[in-house]
């Protein structure tokens, strides 16, 4: 189910917690699984639960509670743009509108080519750099003016062309 590499990474997380507290690694394990599979399918969650010796429902509670897990497939590039008040005061909503227009999709939608999914973010903890967006849960993009957004989209499209069905960054 999960690759050896993923299991190795999960094992490393497990070393952080007491031996009888394997469940502590569930958040990291689900994140690792999601990185590998693109999203958390039911079997993936069950496999993680099994690996950590916890009830699948307990793992599902986690996967559905924390925002950054995706329970359904998303595009190759998931863009989470913050529209919370501090960001909104400095263009967060404008940035979101620009993304919607350029990509032709609304929040929680994926472009037909499967490249982009747009999500509305709550505070990313980077309000001073508004507008901000987070790419695939990992890469924080600050000061995203319309030009910067266009540039980012172009870069990601180019990356997709260069490495067609490659794994998520």
């Amino acid at each position: 189910m999960l690759s050896d590499n993923a299991l190795k990474r999960i094992d490393r997380e497990l070393t952080k917690y007491p031996a009888d507290q394997k469940q502590s690694a569930v958040m990291a394990a689900l994140a690792i699984a999601q990185d590998e599979k693109g999203y958390l399918a039911q079997e993936t969650i069950a496999a993680v639960a099994d690996y950590l010796g916890m009830a699948p429902m307990a793992a599902y509670e986690i996967a559905s509670f924390y925002n950054m897990y995706d329970l359904a497939p998303v595009g190759r590039f998931k863009l989470t743009v913050c529209t919370n008040l501090p960001c909104a005061l400095s263009g967060g909503v404008h940035a979101a509108d620009h993304l919607k227009q350029t990509l032709g999709i609304d929040f929680n939608e994926t472009t037909p080519d499967g490249l982009f999914t747009l999500k509305e973010g709550e505070c990313l903890g980077a309000c001073g750099d508004a507008p901000v967006l987070l790419m695939n849960n990992k890469r924080m993009c600050s000061h995203m003016s319309t030009e910067a957004i266009d540039q980012l989209l172009a870069e990601l499209r180019a990356e997709a062309l260069a490495k067609p069905a490659g794994p998520k960054s």
């Binding site: 039911q42 969650i45 069950a46 009830a55 699948p56 429902m57 307990a58 599902y60 509670e61 559905s64 509670f65």
Partner: peptide, 22 residues
Amino acid sequence: GLMELGQAFRGEHAEIMSFIGQ
């Protein structure tokens, strides 16, 4: 002895359910 039910999602969307389909 086995958590067959859980409260998934959060806030107002919180739902009591079993692991999908079980």
